[in-house]
Every structure is written in structure tokens, then in C-alpha cells.
């Protein structure tokens, strides 16, 4: 189509998008209250998407951190290909930088980073085959990526010198035990 003919429409669409992201005024004729409601809807939608893609991390996020994280996400461009994955990645890295990433979130970040990497603001799959390890206080995480990805946890027996803890008992036969279902399901479902 003739660029001159669609330019006014392009300007108005861009104005609407910017106003939904909290920048500039809405286009003429569009109700400001409706813009605010849509903006709130967008924010919750992004929160839902990343929570779904990062179930362990989302359970670890403290209630009092949610507003700040939501504002942070809304200030970041949306990855249209893997929105939930990318937003969760941002949340995980931010918490990690601040030293507030919990053990489940750390494990999920390891699993995701094993298969995905960020390139120009978008998440792209890494090449396979890959194998990786991550040490945990009481075990070793082993990740394998060949077509699909698997995550295993190898428990390491505590030494006799360590004081007993109230943790649940480790598997009796000490076989490699699978990671929580959500992690592996997630890796292959995205």
C-alpha cells in the first residue's frame, strides 16, 4: 500500500502502543481510563505468562517484591516469540544479581540457561548435544540436552561431621533421582 496513505494510521497505532507502555498521550478519541485498564491487563498477562513458564521461581518471589518486578517487566520490551520464558529469565537474572535468588529459582535458571540463551532481547535455543553440571549444597544437578532436555539430581551423602538437618531423607538406594517434574516438563514444553 502507498506509504503516504497509511502513515496517519501508523502514527495513531504507534501512539496507542506507546500509551499502553506508559509513554506519551493516547491517540485522539481513545478513552484514557480504558487505556489504563488495558495497561493493567497487559501487566497481569505478562506476570501470568512468566509465572507459568517458571513455576518454581514464581513460587519463590516474595509478595512484597511483586509490584517492583511488575514495573521492571513492563519497562522491558516484550519478546514476541517466547514472552513468558524471556520475562522469567529477566526476573531470575535480576534476583540473582541482587543475591535474592532462592534454590528452586537457581535450579530453574540453570535448567533454562542450559537450553536457551538471550540474543538481541530474544530467547533462542542453544545447539545440542550438551551436558552440564551445577553443584548444589547437597547434590549435583546434571543436565543433558539432545533433541529434548533432561535434568537429573544426584544426591551427595552428607559427611558424618555435618550436623543432622531436618531435611527429608534421601532415597535409600542413592540412585540418580529426577528433578522436580515442573523443571523438565517446562524445558520441553516451551
Amino acid at each position: 500500500m502507498d506509504p503516504d496513505r497509511i502513515r496517519p494510521l501508523a502514527t495513531r497505532q504507534a501512539q496507542l502502543v506507546r500509551s499502553l507502555l506508559g509513554e506519551g498521550v493516547p491517540p485522539a478519541g481513545v478513552d484514557l481510563h480504558r487505556i489504563r485498564v488495558t495497561r493493567r491487563q497487559l501487566a497481569f498477562k505478562r506476570w501470568r505468562m512468566w509465572s507459568k513458564a517458571w513455576p518454581a521461581l514464581s513460587r519463590e518471589v516474595a509478595l512484597e517484591d511483586r509490584d517492583a518486578l511488575l514495573r521492571f517487566l513492563m519497562s522491558e520490551p516484550l519478546d514476541s516469540s517466547h514472552p513468558g520464558l524471556a520475562d522469567g529469565f529477566r526476573v531470575a537474572r535480576r534476583l540473582d544479581r541482587e543475591g535474592r535468588l532462592g534454590p528452586a529459582g537457581r535450579r530453574e535458571l540453570f535448567a533454562v540457561q542450559f537450553v536457551w540463551r538471550e540474543r538481541h532481547g530474544s530467547m533462542v535455543r542453544r545447539r545440542w548435544p550438551r551436558i552440564g553440571f551445577s553443584a548444589e549444597p547437597d547434590g549435583l544437578l546434571i543436565a543433558v540436552y539432545a533433541v529434548r532436555a533432561w535434568l537429573f539430581r544426584l544426591p551427595i551423602p552428607r559427611s558424618a561431621a555435618q550436623p543432622p538437618t531436618p531435611d527429608p531423607p534421601e532415597p535409600e538406594d542413592r540412585r540418580v533421582s529426577p528433578a522436580p517434574r515442573s523443571g523438565t516438563e517446562y524445558l520441553n514444553a516451551v
Binding site: M1, R5, I6, P8, L9, A10, R12, Q13, A14, L16, V17, R18, L20, L21, T38, Q41, L42, K45, R46, M49, P77, L78, D79, S80, P83
Partner: peptide, 27 residues
């Protein structure tokens, strides 16, 4: 539409129901 000026909204936004928008959609 879901993006403008290269910015993704992540949400379905309405198209103005005008002749220009109709021609664009048809194309």
C-alpha cells in the same frame, strides 16, 4: 494489530474501522 514501530504489545489491539485500515487488512 499487536505491534507498532517494532514494539510488541503482547496483546490484540483493535484496528480503526476505516477505509484505509480495510484496504490494509485486505492486502
Amino acid at each position: 494489530f499487536v505491534r507498532a514501530e517494532g514494539v510488541e504489545v503482547g496483546h490484540l489491539l483493535p484496528v480503526p474501522r476505516t477505509e484505509v485500515a480495510m484496504d490494509l487488512l485486505a492486502e
